[in-house]
């Protein structure tokens, strides 16, 4: 799993590196409790047993909602800072 996650992250520029992998699990558990993600055991690219997490329909919806909210927030903040520059 670690590699899969790392791969997904590193595909994006500027992704933060996780200093403490252990802290991920409570977050994953929370998401799973909310049925935003589902997981199952599988085999990794280098033939090791690993647990694979994937986003569910509920999760996708939630993600979209969060994304929209985030965009709204950044838009407002952007306007706010633009205002600051005008002054």
């Amino acid at each position: 799993m670690a590699t899969a996650l790392r791969a997904a992250w590193s595909r994006r520029a500027g992704a933060p590196s996780i200093s403490n992998h252990g802290t991920l699990y409570p977050v994953l558990m929370k998401l799973e409790q909310e049925s935003a993600i589902a997981s199952e055991w599988g085999v990794s690219e280098n033939n090791r047993r690993a647990r694979f997490y994937r986003i569910t329909k509920v999760g996708r919806k939630q993600l979209l909602a969060e994304k929209r909210q985030w965009e709204e927030t950044t838009r407002i903040m952007g306007q706010f800072f633009a205002l600051g520059e005008e002054i």
Binding site: M1, A2, T3, H21, G22, Y25, R48, R49, A50, R51
Partner: peptide
């Protein structure tokens, strides 16, 4: 899962 994770990191 923790075991597997550490295993992978070690690898």
């Amino acid at each position: 899962e923790i075991d597997a994770h550490i295993e992978l990191l070690t690898l």
